[in-house]
Design a binder for these strands. Structure first.
Lengths: 228, 228
DNA sequence: CAGCTTTTTTATAAAATCTTTATATCGTAG
DNA sequence: CTACGATATAAAGATTTTATAAAAAAGCTG
């Protein structure tokens, strides 16, 4: 394989230069972008193996850039953030960042993270089916089976279940779920979620009163887990 | 790895000499600076593994030096202060110091702190996860494990634990913790902090009555440490 | 349009979490 | 030793969040 191609999106020319030197010295191809907008368009044209994104961008908020790139970009994204940005980092991870570093950071650590991210083989979310515990979701036929028995789900229930199953083990926030299923205009309609989660539980849980598959994370969201 | 390089910034020649001897005898490289300005420029050129900074400097206030160095310097900074400087210490920690010692201090303690700060040269966690002692925090899934066993934490407990873990070894002031977790309007609600620290201890400490992971720094804050 | 399904809204009980209070404990200064 | 300020902790009280059924509205389909 060729030398991996890394796209650096950072508005600070100093940092950009430093990163370029460091990364090239470690055997990577490097491309640069100074703004979020530029970054998005370059990423689209060169398809880098990894994106290094500084969250403190001037034109678009780094989070927005992240979300936008993530819509079609599957390779790892490593974000840089200032030390104080606790919240920011959590948001970034929610928005699809694979890893993060806080500035100031050590060069060795940066390189190690980059290596580790690149090594990780693309899982690629294009599976024809998802199986988790007793549940099997055929994404092509759009059929869900529980212990081999076909479940009757409405379109919304199905979309929600697929979203959960694709993110097994991790907490999905109310916001995220609402945005993905109903759209960004529904961020405060958490009641929808409660209703649909209850319906799903009624159909997939052994004992809907003591849910084990879709677990509540109070004040945060829900977590889908199967197989302990 | 080489012998760690320590930069001592102190205006008192007596103390400087003493520190130099002590540190060299323990196997460290040592550089000296007598003023804040000098300290900054030396630090910039030699990139020490640790900075030992006396807050009572003549030319610039120690706090200023601290802030300035912290803009680009990522390695640990240990500050020295006189016993009465309660306020001073809190400021220093908020300005990015990793740890502090009050004069007069015992040599053994100084060396222990130095060792502990240096040891924490990130071995690089793989994914966005933090591991510290028996604790493992998966920031993506938002799962905390203690000896492999999943802990049930509320959102606030989780946020607090993450904040601690991301600043391992470092004293976090009450103010800082309150501001980060509850917001700037809660700076005087230190009781919240006590309650939640107690709850966390109950969940992660072997013996909550003799906490080893979240340690109280009376009148200042708390320190999260694992591995001594 | 009539009948069926699905989504959205409403209502209410139950659960979980946060906040406050009360009391005990600890450590230090005098 | 005593008193005081700071800390620890349980537990009560208040508030928010969640679960669920069921009614109302909206969509579909033939």
């Amino acid at each position: 394989m060729n030398r991996p191609l890394i796209l650096v999106i950072d508005d600070d020319i100093q940092i950009r230069r430093l990163l370029e030197i460091t990364l090239r010295a470690s055997g990577y191809e490097v491309e640069m972008a100074a703004t979020g907008r530029e970054g998005i368009s370059i990423a689209a044209s060169i398809k880098p193996d990894l994106v290094l994104l500084d969250l403190g961008l001037p034109d678009k908020s780094g989070q927005e850039v992240l979300r936008e790139i993530r819509e079609w970009f599957a390779n790892p994204i490593l974000v840089l953030s200032v030390l104080t940005g606790e919240e920011e980092i959590v948001d970034a991870l929610d928005n699809g960042a694979n890893d993060y570093l806080t500035k100031p950071y050590r060069t060795g650590e940066l390189l190690a993270r980059v290596r580790s991210l690149l090594k990780r083989a693309q899982p690629v979310g294009n599976l024809p089916s998802i199986t988790s515990g007793n549940l099997n979701i055929d994404l092509v036929a759009k059929v869900v089976k529980n212990n081999g028995e076909v479940l009757k789900l409405t379109a919304t229930e199905y979309a929600l279940l697929v979203l959960f199953a694709r993110n097994e083990g991790r907490v999905l926030t109310h916001q995220y779920l609402l945005k993905e299923i109903w759209g960004p205009g529904f961020l405060n309609q958490s009641q929808y979620l409660r209703v649909y989660v209850a319906q799903l539980r009624k159909k997939i849980e052994k004992d809907p009163n003591r849910p084990e598959i879709i677990v509540t994370e109070s004040r945060v969201g829900y977590r889908f887990t199967e197989g302990r």
